[in-house]
Design a binder for these strands. Structure first.
Lengths: 226, 226
DNA sequence: TTACTTAGTTAACAATTTGATAATGTTAAC
DNA sequence: GTTAACATTATCAAATTGTTAACTAAGTAA
């Protein structure tokens, strides 16, 4: 990235805000702040940050709520979301992951830990594997440039949505995609479709390919597994 | 880290030095000491510690001054700095964080607290990905991003609540979780479920995994133990 | 245009899984 | 040895997902 990386910090404790922004500023990041959940969403829209640090416990809207909302917006597709939780609050970790958080940092905060985590996150964001156009898993090949799916040398024609769904899941085999995540990635956030729609598409993929490459994780979502 | 972790302790009270170094030594850390700020800087250079514990109130140079100086040196980039402050001295706390301190411990010092804080600091510095989503204990692996539980290479499918319960307990092996604690973490505060519900889920986990990884602490709660 | 095809969605229903409870059996503590 | 706490089992209701068929809209060829 050429322009300075922009980071939004949302916390209701001014001290925390001050400390974090001081350190991030020193490192050359462009920093904006918000003192509650509602302001966080406003600032997220106007400031368009690359990374948002959200305290879980905030007035008006909690960090979870903000995270959940942001993840429904295509605009914040690639925005990193870091949640600040109370120490050893494992349940929050689970909840946060389900809502699409990218990392968690426990309070009390060490500036060094925070900064190293954030830089690590950005490092991981570098386009290496992720923007490869062709996914190959065993004898299954998924080529997005041709919208083509080849299994054991045989080409299968998937419809657009079917293909996009398969591609999304296969891009990260094993990782569980929540239904909401799938909806926003494949269908977009402005389209409203029922829940059964995903099932039906999954079924069609399974039927066409004739293999059980998509595993259901009940109560959670689906994952690619072949 | 392969070599023993090196810790430098700087305090003008010999008693404090002695107590802290005794406990850290016992845990296998390599310890050096300094009795004032100037000596702290000398020793920091010659000893090259991984972690420096600084009393804020010291002769010659205060902990703040030492901290500020160290932070200007590239050499001490990755060195953890822990400041010892007077009880409830919020101003020092903030000032210290701004100067690049990583943690604060209030006097009077409990050796146990000190040690646990330091190990926690080292742990939190670890890369995010590994300790964020995957818990590994011996030959048991719990991966929340895949909702997967692998024991001795065999994958076991746990239901959502089962998984979350196991994850909660396994995140802090040995620690006893009270029933109320488990309820609020796994089920949430607004849901009201009976006490037997926990038992049943614990039983299901034990049955599925086939190992006694969850120990009952009668009259108190449960703990992970494997 | 008209008839035909296809993709995408929905609705209705079936099948499955899960979570919670109640009832009863066991165990450990006092 | 009694009692409180926990384990076990069976059972049921609710939640979740799978399946099928039908409908709509859009595209395509005659």
């Amino acid at each position: 990235m050429e322009a300075p990386i922009k980071i939004l910090i949302a916390d209701d404790e001014p001290d925390i805000i001050e400390i974090i922004s001081f350190h991030l500023n020193k490192l050359g990041y462009e920093v904006a702040t918000a003192k509650d959940g509602s302001e966080a969403i406003e600032k997220a829209n106007s400031f368009a940050p690359d990374c948002i640090i959200l305290d879980v416990m905030m007035p008006k809207r909690t960090g979870f709520e903000v995270c959940e909302y942001l993840r429904t917006q295509k605009k914040f597709d690639k925005t990193l979301i870091v949640l600040l939780t109370a120490l050893n609050d494992e349940a929050s970790h689970i909840k946060g992951l389900e809502l699409g958080g990218d990392d968690f940092i426990s309070k009390p905060i060490s500036p060094k830990v925070l900064v190293s985590r954030i830089t690590a996150l950005f490092r991981r964001l570098q386009p290496t594997e992720s923007d490869k156009k062709i996914i190959t898993i065993n004898d299954l090949m998924i080529d997005i440039s041709q919208y083509k799916t080849v299994l054991k040398g045989v080409t299968y024609v998937l419809a657009k949505k079917e293909f996009e769904l398969l591609y999304l899941l296969a891009a990260q085999p094993g990782r569980v995609f929540l239904r909401g995540e799938i909806l926003s990635q494949v269908w977009g956030n402005d389209v409203i479709v029922g829940d059964r729609t995903i099932d039906v598409h999954v079924r069609k993929i399974r039927a066409k390919l004739g293999i059980d490459c998509i595993t259901t994780v009940k109560g959670v979502g689906y994952k690619f597994n072949y």
